[in-house]
Amino acid sequence: MRLSSLTDGIFKNNAIFKQMLGMCPTLAVTTSASNGVAMGLATTAVLMGSNFAVSLFSGFIPKNARIPCYIVIIACFVTVVDLYMNAYFHALHKALGLFIPLIVVNCIVLGRAEAFASRSPVADSVLDGLGTGIGFTIALTALAVCRELVGAGTVFGYAVAPSFYVPVILAVLPPGAFVFLGFMMAFTRFMSSKIKGGGH
């Protein structure tokens, strides 16, 4: 078991900023910070579960049947998360709507199952799921906080902007999602080039 299984997914291979995976939910649910966190945590739960199951069963699954089997396993965990969220976090479930079942086709989940869990020990796979999920959650939350702050003047529903601030509604509308993500990607590139430059 290596610690790097956990940390790689958070920083080095951050799914959104570095690998450009899982874009649909990233853009769609980041209209408020609480939605962003909820979506991130739901995806993390699915990632850990599917990585665990895929790593456990990979020995028994013939090579050619890999993808359909993985898809069924992932869909199974997604439905479990969907059912329990609907039962115990009903309001959040309503807010995220269609994008809970769509975790199935989030390329991050299938990508980690195929690229990591299918050829790694169980413990490492679960850690990798946790790390990738945390990285995804951080990125979603960062984007959602920015959009909610600019678009509504609030963070997690609390008013933080001064009263004279007029919210730029466009930030929480569809175009705002694309533009904010574009600028955030440029910003992370700028920062990582700075850090690398300083190391030399």
Partner: peptide, 14 residues
């Protein structure tokens, strides 16, 4: 820093 993905997203926004 805007090459490829970032500028593509901003264009998609417009």
């Amino acid at each position: 820093i805007f090459r490829d993905a970032p500028i593509a997203f901003i264009t998609a926004g417009i």
